[in-house]
Amino acid sequence: MLAIVSAIIFGLGFLLDLLNTRIAGGISGTTFMLLGLCLLALHQAGVGTASIRKSYGSWRGRSRR
């Protein structure tokens, strides 16, 4: 989920950089790029990837045998 959000943030930053525009408050394409990198780092660290069901004991769930 965080990877999808970071892709959207990267897209917005890319558009802002192409158009050479800034949002009020000094937010530019570089700001969106850094936010996207932060979200990708959280995704790679495993934040937000845990399973909802915790009764099976692991994030993969029950394996079939």
Rank of each mutant, 00 (worst) to 15 (best):
G13V: 03
Q44H: 14
R62H: 08
L18P: 05
R64I: 09
S55D: 06
G29H: 06
A50N: 10
L42K: 10
A7N: 02
T21P: 00
L37T: 10
G36P: 14
Y56T: 02
L18W: 11
K54R: 15
V5Y: 05
L39Y: 07
D17C: 01
G11F: 12
G61E: 00
L37C: 07
L12W: 07
G11T: 08
T30S: 08
H43S: 15
L15G: 02
I52T: 06
G61A: 00
I52K: 05
H43A: 15
R53Y: 02
I8N: 02
I9D: 05
G29I: 05
R60P: 07
G11S: 08
L2Y: 14
H43W: 11
G26H: 04
A41T: 11
L34E: 10
G11K: 13
N20S: 04
R64C: 04
S55P: 07
G26N: 01
R22E: 01
L15C: 03
L39S: 11
K54N: 14
G13Y: 00
K54T: 14
H43Y: 08
G11Y: 12
S55N: 04
R62Y: 02
R65T: 15
V47K: 11
H43T: 13
A41D: 15
T21V: 09
L16R: 13
I52R: 03
G13H: 00
L40H: 01
A50K: 14
S6I: 07
H43G: 07
L39V: 11
R22K: 13
L18N: 06
I8C: 05
V47A: 12
L15A: 06
S51N: 07
A41C: 12
L39E: 15
I27Q: 04
V47W: 04
F10A: 03
F32D: 01
L12I: 09
T30Y: 09
G26R: 01
I8K: 04
G57L: 08
F14G: 01
I23P: 00
I9L: 15
G11E: 11
S28P: 06
R22C: 01
M1K: 04
C38H: 10
L16N: 13
I4G: 03
L18V: 10
A7P: 00
R22Y: 09
S58H: 07
I52N: 02
I8M: 06
K54G: 09
L37S: 08
G25H: 04
S58L: 11
R53F: 02
G36W: 04
G13T: 00
L18I: 12
G48H: 15
L15I: 12
F14M: 03
L19F: 10
L42C: 15
S58Y: 02
I27W: 00
I9P: 01
L39I: 14
T30V: 11
G25E: 02
